[in-house]
Design a protein around this nucleic acid. Structure first.
Lengths: 236, 236
DNA sequence: GCGCAAAAAATTGTATACAATTTCGCCGCC
DNA sequence: GGCGGCGAAATTGTATACAATTTTTTGCGC
């Protein structure tokens, strides 16, 4: 597979301790092992990974640039807790960029790429039929990976990195506001998108992608929670 | 003006030393006071701002996340030196997102926003008629600001921040590969885009924006430099 | 003068120490 | 029982120290 960041991956073999800690925390967030709002103290992180606060701090700062962690001056770092408005913006951003990424990917896609996407779909389907929290988490990851793989195929490292951020932040939003217990990514919708790409019907593929994103968003309950709580309190 | 990051700006009044240093360095890069490839040692940066290496390091790390600085393990930090391929990707990313941002901005734009955009155009025009390096730099900044203001009007903080990164990185690319001495942003093109937005002809506005971005990119000389150098050497 | 090896200097990576700020726990009062 | 004040503990912000790595300088031989 062609990859715009293949060169960077060679570089990443020289990655620092802070980057490894960042990656581990990101994974824990995306896989819902760390909940939105969780306090991440530098000491705790440092102790957990057997490093000093220096590396913990660097890792948390890096995650704050990605929007996964919120660092508040003098108060510490927390797993980000996106507001409903922020959630809307994340999905608006996805609607804005994903069709374009899809078009770029479709222009460059190879049969091997298609195979890999299909393989990912199989894996997704397999995880859906499994029970347990671990399978749920892996399923969430696999479904996000579909979008990330398209971004990778597009060959634009900048868009790929942006997409990585959007997907990670989406998973936070879904963890917070999702109403269904599934991954919220319609498994069959991924298949339909691939099929449309294969038949070179890009308008249809983009339409399906937008529908897919809307579907994910529709599953979220983004009503203002505080207002709702008060309203319900007085109606009882 | 409505701004998606107005709340964050209140927060930024509590910004740390590292963030102020990051901002100062970013400005120096964007305004071409720091050239692509310049080494930025932690000690030098710390001495320059009268802080220890800790804050310098944090600032440089932040800038590396934005793509303006390249941090190489054990070797130090350098003002980024985008390759021709990277340059192409930056402009491809702009072509992908800017029409969408423009449409979102157009949907929300107020007469006050239009006034402000026009004011920016006036300023751009004024700077164009001035001589000197300082005016050149300010002109470059003002022309990038047009794009940033549209992103701000769009009301999506995530897209706004991404656009900030793209504009900053574009200015590095233009500094490196630009052939004309002007800002490369066609001043009259900004005006045409505003006019199209005002008449609600968004298809035309988007077309103009794409043309505008293409115009900027066309002014770049992205041929591989080394090959060209050797070729010329043997032809002499 | 050039190339190589070794030493010295500079710089980066990380831990630790100290200063500043926030949070927590306890106590007294209403 | 709740609130406020105060002191202690915890945590964050930043400088400094030490270890590791890279770069530069020096000395020597050809």
């Amino acid at each position: 597979m062609k990859s715009a960041v293949k060169a960077q991956q060679a570089e990443d073999s020289a990655e620092t301790g802070a980057q490894q800690i960042r990656d581990a925390i990101r994974e824990a967030i995306v896989e819902r092992r760390l909940s939105p709002g969780t306090k991440l103290s530098e000491s705790d992180v440092g102790n957990l990974f057997n490093v000093s606060r220096t590396l913990a701090r660097a890792a948390l700062q890096a995650l704050s640039y990605e929007g996964l962690v919120s660092v508040e001056k003098n108060r510490g770092a927390f797993v980000a807790y996106p507001s409903p408005d922020e959630a809307r913006q994340i999905f608006a951003a996805r609607r804005l960029v994903e069709p374009g990424i899809l078009r770029e990917a479709a222009a460059r896609i190879t049969p091997a790429d298609i195979s890999q996407l299909r393989q990912l779909l199989l894996e997704e389907g397999r995880l859906m039929s499994e029970r347990g929290q671990t399978a749920r988490r892996a399923e969430i990851k696999a479904s996000g990976d579909f979008h990330l793989m398209l971004a990778e195929i597009s060959g634009n490292a900048i868009m790929q990195r942006f997409m990585e951020e959007l997907v990670a932040r989406s998973s936070l939003v879904i963890a917070l506001y999702g109403q269904s217990t599934a991954s919220s990514c319609g498994h069959s919708e991924h298949g339909d998108i691939i099929a449309a790409i294969e038949t070179d019907d890009l308008d249809r593929a983009c339409q399906l992608m937008l529908h897919h994103i809307a579907h994910i968003e529709a599953d979220l309950d983004l009503r203002e929670r505080k207002s709702l709580g008060l309203k319900e309190a007085f109606e009882l």
